[in-house]
Design a protein around this nucleic acid. Structure first.
Lengths: 150, 150
DNA sequence: GATAAGCCTGTACCTGGGTACCGGATGCAA
DNA sequence: TTGCATCCGGTACCCAGGTACAGGCTTATC
């Protein structure tokens, strides 16, 4: 009676539509190790477990935030072995650090942009406004102050 | 005295080294419209004005923060015409909105990661921990709640 | 059993952002 | 004037992240 066995699951088209991705992308992710190879129908069609759609959303979310597919794959893989290594937590901690840096960078440039707006700068490079904030736009790992002649 | 005329300026190698970029990248940026075509020596070698190094740092900074080269080019171009359109300010305002969205996204995922660490999740996808925060990881423009079966 | 969706594999292509290599010309110093 | 480092333009290649297409097999429906 559970007769069909592997018969149930979503097909690629359904998953793709619900997750808002291309069908090709599903196969691409499978190749990349982001999606486990799903079960197949007798005829060889993929049948995805329902959680797949949610998983894709996780992937897409992580991606929008600057994680590469390899990173996402690692994160997912790290958790998917049983008796997982303490890896996931460590990676999460590392990612948090990274994210904090990104947020700091974004915050810095946001502030600069706000000043640009505020000061009515008329150019990114040749601004003529009085106390132009632009020359102080140093963010992240800029190698040296600004027009450092050395 | 000021005799040499166009004779002065930095050569590609100098600019590249000081700015920490590849020489090819300079020419690439020139093609892309990020760097104005510099003066040339009589023999045809590029001679960059000194500000170029700073400009490259601006470009690199903007880029690290998620601006595409096209966007950077537009921003730079917008400011480099005299009697500039009020464009720069508007773009800056738009970018601020965009950045705010990114920051919000990053903050959300940061929170989730923090919970992951906190709750000792053992997997991103099959976590067995009691009050696992993962199913609630909705960020940005995810199309529908989560495992929405509809 | 016929027929249209839908899915299969494989391969090729696209965009963004660079990088590398080639053969030839320049710059500059000894 | 010779010689080596540098630079020139052009073309080709690289990686990431997808997307498209071809030719053939399944699945679902009548």
């Amino acid at each position: 009676m559970t007769g069909g066995g592997v018969r149930d699951g979503l097909r690629t088209g359904e998953v793709a539509e619900r997750a808002g991705v291309n069908i090709q992308t599903l196969r691409y992710y499978e190749r990349r190790g982001l999606l486990a190879a799903p079960g197949r129908s007798n005829g060889g069609h993929r049948l995805y477990p329902p959680g797949t759609v949610a998983l894709l959303a996780v992937i897409k979310a992580a991606q929008r935030l600057g994680f590469t597919l390899d990173e996402v794959a690692e994160l997912l893989a790290a958790g998917s072995r049983r008796h997982p290594p303490p890896d996931l937590r460590q990676r999460a901690v590392d990612k948090i650090t990274e994210i904090d840096r990104k947020i700091a960078d974004l915050t810095a440039i946001r502030a600069t942009l706000a000043e640009v707006v505020d000061a009515r700068c008329d150019s990114l490079t040749n601004c003529t406004c009085a106390d132009c904030p632009l020359p102080y736009l140093t963010i992240g790992s800029a190698p040296r102050p600004w027009g450092d002649p050395a």
